[in-house]
Simulated assay, not measured.
Amino acid sequence: MPLEIPLAPVGVRAAELNARYRHHSATAVLRHALSDPQVGRIALVSSFGAESVVLLHMLSVVDRSAPVIFLDTEMLFAETLEYQKDLSEQLGLSDVRVIRPDRRQLLERDPDALLHRTDPDGCCALRKTEPLQDALAPFDAWITGRKRFQGGARAALEFFEAEDDTRIKVNPLAHWDKSDVQDYMVNNRLPRHPLVSQGYPSIGCAPCTSRVGAGEDERAGRWRGAQKEECGIHFVNGKMVRG
């Protein structure tokens, strides 16, 4: 049995990968991320939200057997849960792993499922960040659907990010704009999340997601009224990861 070659430090590999694939297309970056030894073991993490179908479709074309991690926080819209099942089947994704919060931790820290009202960061940690970190433990890298046009901490995203000294984060759609996303959906006749047509261009947990009005930023409906822009899965050591 051949010995595994130890991987270089995460930061070194991310910089080398960006230099190597800087001018590649989104599909090419995804294909290389799934096969380049410097990336290592990899999974796609998907919310099955408003624009998730683009990256999921790309994955189904490149390698539909690649692992897909879906976080069911147990506070998602019913439409999201149904969409996840239907889309996985339609795209032929054969290794979708549904991850849920630890039952004992829920009973201890959020027995009434009201933590989101008093401590939204704590709720996200309990229902998203901690379960995801456990699910990602076997992997050296993970794929996200983040894009620069989403603004905030995402405005300077690169294709490959160093997530502390732990793993690489791959953002194949980093350089796409809104029209690229919409064109891909139309050209490939992909099914939309049912809530998009009801005024939800960005979809998270039901209690913390509201409709977006005309002229508002597409993420304005996430944690409306709170000083919060990210759920926490893109934080490292409590700090927001920037590109």
Results as ranks from 00 to 15, higher is better:
28 A>K: 14
132 L>W: 08
7 L>W: 08
40 G>A: 02
145 G>I: 12
78 A>K: 15
108 E>P: 11
139 F>A: 08
78 A>E: 15
141 A>P: 03
63 D>W: 05
20 R>V: 03
80 T>H: 10
46 S>T: 07
77 F>V: 10
126 L>W: 08
143 I>K: 09
57 H>S: 06
143 I>H: 00
132 L>K: 11
145 G>H: 01
33 A>K: 06
93 L>K: 00
118 T>S: 15
10 V>H: 03
76 L>R: 03
61 V>S: 11
148 R>A: 02
40 G>K: 07
112 D>S: 14
99 I>V: 12
148 R>Q: 08
144 T>E: 01
95 D>G: 01
101 P>D: 06
54 V>K: 00
35 S>Q: 15
70 F>P: 14
103 R>M: 04
57 H>K: 12
52 S>W: 10
77 F>S: 02
55 L>H: 10
111 P>M: 08
88 S>L: 14
101 P>R: 01
75 M>F: 03
72 D>Y: 08
41 R>P: 03
131 P>M: 02
77 F>Q: 04
117 R>T: 09
15 A>M: 05
59 L>P: 02
11 G>I: 09
10 V>G: 01
149 F>E: 13
15 A>P: 05
91 L>C: 03
69 I>T: 07
120 P>M: 13
95 D>Y: 06
60 S>R: 11
50 A>S: 05
126 L>C: 07
126 L>I: 07
7 L>K: 13
112 D>I: 11
9 P>H: 13
78 A>V: 12
89 E>P: 00
95 D>V: 08
74 E>P: 02
67 P>M: 12
117 R>G: 00
146 R>Y: 11
148 R>Y: 03
88 S>D: 02
50 A>L: 02
124 C>F: 09
144 T>I: 12
31 R>V: 10
62 V>Y: 05
16 E>K: 15
21 Y>S: 14
114 L>H: 13
73 T>Q: 01
15 A>Y: 14
12 V>D: 09
88 S>V: 11
10 V>P: 11
136 L>Y: 00
49 G>I: 09
25 S>R: 10
16 E>R: 15
11 G>V: 10
63 D>V: 02
25 S>L: 07
28 A>F: 06
113 A>Q: 12
15 A>F: 05
29 V>K: 11
88 S>R: 07
49 G>L: 07
6 P>C: 06
73 T>S: 09
103 R>Q: 04
109 R>G: 00
11 G>D: 01
44 L>M: 02
100 R>E: 05
112 D>G: 04
106 L>P: 00
109 R>S: 00
34 L>N: 01
39 V>G: 06
106 L>R: 15
80 T>S: 04
6 P>N: 09
123 C>N: 08
61 V>C: 13
114 L>I: 15
98 V>K: 00
140 D>T: 04
102 D>E: 10
26 A>L: 05
26 A>E: 06
106 L>M: 03
125 A>D: 08
150 Q>V: 13
126 L>Y: 05
122 G>C: 07
62 V>F: 11
56 L>Y: 01
93 L>I: 06
134 D>C: 15
75 M>L: 12
96 V>Y: 04
65 S>I: 11
20 R>F: 07
77 F>W: 05
107 L>G: 04
59 L>V: 07
141 A>T: 02
24 H>N: 14
19 A>F: 06
91 L>Q: 09
148 R>I: 03
38 Q>R: 10
102 D>W: 14
88 S>P: 09
47 S>G: 12
26 A>K: 04
30 L>R: 06
122 G>I: 14
131 P>R: 08
